[in-house]
Write a protein that binds this DNA or RNA. Structure first.
Lengths: 202, 202
DNA sequence: CCATTTTTGTAGTGTTTGATACACAAATAG
DNA sequence: CTATTTGTGTATCAAACACTACAAAAATGG
């Protein structure tokens, strides 16, 4: 039972994916409604009727990004047998994602709203919270490694999480600045190689 | 001989410094002319007469930032006796700068224009070039270390430069997201501790 | 003094922004 | 069929944007 009135002439999820790409590439404020409606193939009243506002559309696009792109990170943290293997796979999977020619360079969560205007405060805070959540999930994976014995008990899990989060965020910027896969891999492997010293007591 | 006409009623460098802080905090597009003129204590015709345009003002502000804040990085690279000590001091000096309550958090070059609109393409490319230049200066310091014997000859200078640049860029984002000095120092010290593995042959 | 030069404050310019009013189109309910 | 409900396209809205025309103000040169 698809409701009573006139049916929607576009696919909501396809339009959302296209909006996600525009926000990913230009950021929240850098993406104009004209950019969005053109990419989505609809007019602004349809956008507002289906998504509410530019900010709500952005939040849905971020959630959609988390479910698709972010899934690789969560999967690696969940499925790899050790904390070291998990964080190594997170870095390597993101290198592959960052240079994928089918999508914009780097991580949307990192790049879509670093600076802030008064009118985009809510959006910025939301992304900052998501970045902190990523770091927290890194930290929890290290704590799990300590509990399971594959990470030294003297390791500082918060420090390890912050370190790998910083490397990953830096890789986002470098890939947006044009770094190729070899350069990003070199950074990732340097961070992987540093595992023993980073997890040592400080 | 201060020229013939009516003298300028404001100090050009003071106004430039205030504009720099606004751009540092809000980014190029996030800083409106109203924000700028309010902070600088002048009206828009004075701004245009003294600086030409918003983009030219931004470029002057970036140059001013490089001469003041960026000076610490260049000084460390120049004056520290070894490549390791130089990059360690770069990270530590930037931790101190990033949490200085007198200025916005993080690095202006990293945060002022990560995303791009069509109308700010020139500005974004300019900052990307400056970020690459920082990485290049890291790389050159490592190459000097190899030449002077304090870095293993088998080290990949480009990889080392990219790695420390990524860590520093990630620290900018984390400090903008509210990380305190202890958290940033932990990241910096983790990267410093990784020196031997990062400079080892790969 | 007067002429010239440059800066200042007021008050705009045209354009782009995010968001809508409204009439028409296309579906279902009865 | 008619009534109701919902989506679409056109044509726009007010506000904010970067920028500037213009005349009064404040300095120097002769």
């Amino acid at each position: 039972m698809p409701g009573r009135g006139r049916p929607r002439a576009f696919d909501r999820e396809t339009a959302l994916t296209r909006a996600m790409v525009v926000f990913w590439e230009h950021g929240y404020e850098g993406a104009s409604l004209t950019d969005l409606t053109t990419a989505m193939g609809i007019n602004s009243p349809s956008l507002y009727s289906a998504f509410g506002s530019k900010e709500q559309l952005f939040r849905e696009a971020v959630a959609h990004y988390g479910e698709t792109e972010g899934g690789h990170t969560e999967k690696a943290l969940r499925e790899q047998p050790t904390a070291r293997a998990a964080l190594a796979e997170v870095l390597r999977a993101n290198v592959r994602a960052y240079v994928d020619p089918a999508t914009p360079r780097g991580c949307m969560i990192v790049l879509a709203a670093t600076t802030y205007t008064d009118r985009s405060e809510g959006v910025r805070d939301h992304l900052a919270e998501m970045r902190r959540a990523t770091e927290q999930s890194f930290r929890e994976r290290v704590e799990r490694g300590i509990a399971e014995g594959d990470v030294p008990g003297s390791a500082d899990a918060a420090k390890v999480g912050a370190f790998y989060n910083a490397v990953l965020q830096g890789m986002s910027i470098q890939s947006r600045d044009g770094a190729d896969e070899a350069a990003l891999s070199a950074v990732a492997e340097a961070a992987v190689a540093a595992w023993d010293t980073v997890t040592a007591a400080s």
